[in-house]
Amino acid sequence: MTDRPIPEDAWRTVVRNVPIVSVDLIVRHDGGVVLGKRENRPGRGEWFVPGGRVLKDEAIDDAIDRVAREELGVAVDVEERLGVYEHFWERSEFDDVPTKHYLVVGVVVRPRSDAFVADDQHAELRIFEAPFPDLHPYVEAYLRDAGL
């Protein structure tokens, strides 16, 4: 598995030319769902599910485990695979690359601990319960499909 950072120029080329394969975690906890307030683009300022790209030669289940550890600081158990989603963002992290396209495997997980630790991509983590506030349409689709 390649887990080295991709040089910025190479990453810019990827973002400009191909969809990014990723996993998004719908984290059930105490009758609600864990969301993080995004610090980076796309989605800066939005409450969003934890997620991240799948690394070269990394199995989906390994990506789920890694993303949970990196973005939440906890291990998780998979409860349900919701399927594949497409996310089309009207901006990327690069000013000269106007859009970003993701192919996302949405997965419902349950944390093995509630000792959440936000990473540098999230200003904070919070547990939201229904009725949910206005959330990004991609998050609303996950919650609907997960029956939350």
Rank of each mutant, 00 (worst) to 15 (best):
L82S: 04
Q121E: 07
R16M: 09
R126P: 12
I20C: 09
P19L: 04
R126W: 09
Y85T: 13
R66M: 15
P50G: 03
D24V: 02
E71A: 01
D24P: 10
P42I: 10
D120I: 14
F88I: 07
V27N: 00
F128W: 10
L72F: 02
D65F: 10
D95Y: 14
R81N: 15
F132H: 08
I6K: 01
H122K: 06
D77N: 15
I60K: 13
V49A: 05
E140Y: 14
I20G: 06
S92T: 15
E8K: 03
G31W: 00
A118R: 10
R4P: 07
Y85G: 00
F132K: 02
P137G: 05
A68T: 09
D61F: 05
A123R: 04
A75E: 10
A68R: 03
A10V: 14
L82H: 03
V108Y: 08
H122R: 09
D30G: 14
D77H: 13
L143G: 06
A141Y: 06
H29E: 13
F116K: 03
I60Y: 08
V139I: 10
I64E: 01
P133K: 04
P131W: 02
V97H: 02
G147K: 03
D77I: 11
K37A: 05
P111I: 08
P19I: 06
N40Q: 04
R53T: 13
D30L: 14
D120G: 10
Y85K: 05
I6T: 00
E58P: 00
P7F: 08
